[in-house]
Structure formats: structure tokens, C-alpha cells
Amino acid sequence: MGWESQRKNVLLAVTGLTPQVLTETLFALSREPGPSALPQRIYVVTTAEGARRAQLMLLSEQPGWFHRLRRDWGLPSMDFSEEHIHVLRDANGNPMDDVRSGADNAAAADQIAELVRRLTEDPDTALHVSLAGGRKTLGFFAGYALSLWGRPQDRLSHVLVSEPFESCWEFFYPTPDERILTIEGKGVYDCRTAQVTLADIPFVRLRSGLPPALLQSSASFAQAVAAAQGYLGSPSLTLNLNQRFIVAHGQKVSLPPAELAFLAWFARRRQLNLPPLPRPSDGVPEREYAHAYQEEYQRIVGPLGDDERVRRRLRNGMSRADFDERKARLKNLLQRSLGAAAQPYLIQGRGPRPQRFELPLPPQAIRFES
């Protein structure tokens, strides 16, 4: 994001129709002991009407509550402008006034997830997500997105405002000087007496279990949840040889025929409860290995597929070099796609040397799909 190498704080607030959530959160942060937790950059995510209210109430010359907060309490400069107010859009790309349908719900979830993903890309930032404003579903999406992409330095909170100020549309923060508000049905109160605090919300960080692709590029909220759920659940493997892909931990991974055949060979053996295999000895190619591997390869490329190069390479059997190369390339492809979740799907050695190799999945977790 072009900031100094020192870690910077970023605040993301879900505001809905209550822009004062932002000023209340900033005030509470300014009162925390220790190193300053105030953000250097601020983002707001909201609906079209919420954005209009944030612009008029926070960033205008009058009342301009964001600027007044900084002046009243001598707070440092913070990067916050209309460009940092993200308006949710519906499935057709139109600004969203409210979340009124399942399609709106999915669109809002995807946009909030993508915003959180982007804001957690930079290792030199610490992201603080405030959930106090807006519809409960929007706050849920923001909190869940932080659970998916959040890092150890990130934070989730809810701002708490004492009665009767929490229900007052004209309250934005406790002022240093007298400011009297008439609160309907409750009486007259001085803003100086308000108590504003932050309640930290513990959350489970699942980032390490997400496939690298979901950390580096856009993905739907549902895709990210499925990836995390797959990581947490029991491993399962589906192989589709015709379409040349597998589904591992709920993630679809396309594989080249050579590596897919190697995995299919070991998956077939595991389904049949056959024993692990030793690596071919140096200088002694294994004809049975070559035959079993070529059977899987032929299933993948089909009767008219070109397997001449494979047959030539394995005409004397599968050498140790062939075995190691296929195993290493398969490992690289799976780890690139699945990250830490790839481990159960790698061909692994067992026992003392010389090790014997197998796919360490239970037979019932493996399925071939035509």
C-alpha cells in the first residue's frame, strides 16, 4: 500500500445507517493505554444510503464529525476520504440501498470478503474490523471474513456506548466541552458524561488452512468458506480421470495426465488395501510399476490419446528417477493449489529406510468419478 516498512494500523468499519460508529470507535481507540491503536488509514463499508450519511455527517464542513473529533481531542492525521467509503453493489452492479434478497446477500458477502482479503495482503499492516454498525448480516460477513483471512496482528471489536447515548442519532463521541442533547423520551444529557469502550471479539484464524490461490486472488465468500471447511473436515479425495481433475478437501485441482496417473495409481492401490511400494532400486526399473502406471495414464488420455512418449520412457520399466520425478511434481502441484491442506494427498514414505510409499488416506475417503 506504499506505506513505510513500520507496521501501520488500518480500520475497517461496517456502518450501515449509523456513521457515528466510526467516530465512537476512534474515540475509544484514542483512550486505550499503551502504543497508539489509532489507524493511519480508514475504510468504511456500507449501503448507498449509509455512504450518503457518512459523507454528510463525517466528512462535510458542517457538521463534519470526523474532523471535529480530531480537533476536539487533538488526534493525529488519518487517511480517510470519500474514496475510502465502499458502497455495496447488487448482482447487476448497482449501488445497494439495502440487502433485500438472497442475491443481494451473496453479493454483499463477496464484496466484504474481497475487501478484507485485500486489506490483509500487506504484512506490514494490522487490520482492525469494527462490527457495531449496519445490518447484522453485514457485520457477520465482515467478522467471518476476518476469521478466514485474519493474521495474528489483526483485531475484531464492537463499540459499546452507555445509555442513553447509544440510541441517540445526534451522539457521535464524548466531547471535551459541554454539549447538551435532548434525547426523546429520556431527557436532557451532556455528551461529556458518555462512556464509550471497545469490546474485543476473539475469533478463530483460519488463514493458514486456505489454499494459496484464495490468499492471492479474488474468490467468492462461499468458495473461501468451503475451502476452510474442507481444511477443518476429514480429508477426502475424488478423482475424475476423464476431466483430468481431482477434488481434495473440497477444492478442485486440475492435474496434467502424467501426475494424475501417478496419483490414481496409488489411490487405486489404497482402495484395494494393497501394501505400500518401495522405490525402484538404482539401475533396476520396475516393470510392474510401469504397467500399472500406464494403465492409469491410458484411462486418462483415452484410446485415441497419444501415449507413445510414455511407453517409450517406460519400455524397460519405471526407474527410480521416473518414480521420484512424478512424486515430486505431484507434490509441487498439490501444495501450490492446496497449501498446508495438501499433506494428506501426497505420496508419502513409511517406516525405516528403505521406506515404502503410499497414499495415506483411508480407502473409504477415495472415490473415482466417471
Rank of each mutant, 00 (worst) to 15 (best):
I347R: 05
E325T: 13
R329I: 09
A328V: 10
Y293N: 06
K331G: 11
Q335I: 09
R326D: 10
D322A: 13
R299S: 00
I347Q: 05
R299L: 02
G302S: 02
Q298F: 01
D306E: 14
A340K: 05
E325F: 12
Y345D: 09
Q294D: 01
Y345F: 15
Q298R: 10
R311S: 14
Q298W: 01
L333H: 01
E308Q: 15
R311M: 12
E308G: 13
A321W: 07
P344C: 11
D322L: 09
A292Y: 10
G339H: 01
A328P: 00
Y297V: 06
D322N: 15
A342T: 04
I300R: 03
D306S: 07
R336D: 04
S337C: 02
Q348D: 11
I347G: 03
Q335M: 05
R315P: 06
Y293T: 08
A321L: 09
Q294K: 09
R299H: 02
P344V: 08
N316L: 14
A328N: 10
R311L: 12
V310K: 11
A321Q: 12
E295D: 09
A341H: 04
M318V: 11
D322V: 10
Y293Q: 06
K331R: 11
R329L: 13
L334I: 01
V310H: 07
R311G: 08
S319R: 14
R312A: 14
E296T: 05
F323L: 07
R309H: 13
L314Y: 15
V301F: 00
G349K: 05
L334D: 00
A340N: 07
E296H: 06
Q298S: 12
Q298T: 06
A340E: 14
E308L: 12
A341W: 00
G339R: 00
F323E: 06
R309A: 15
A328R: 13
A341P: 01
E325I: 10
E325D: 13
A340S: 10
N316E: 15
F323I: 11
P344W: 04
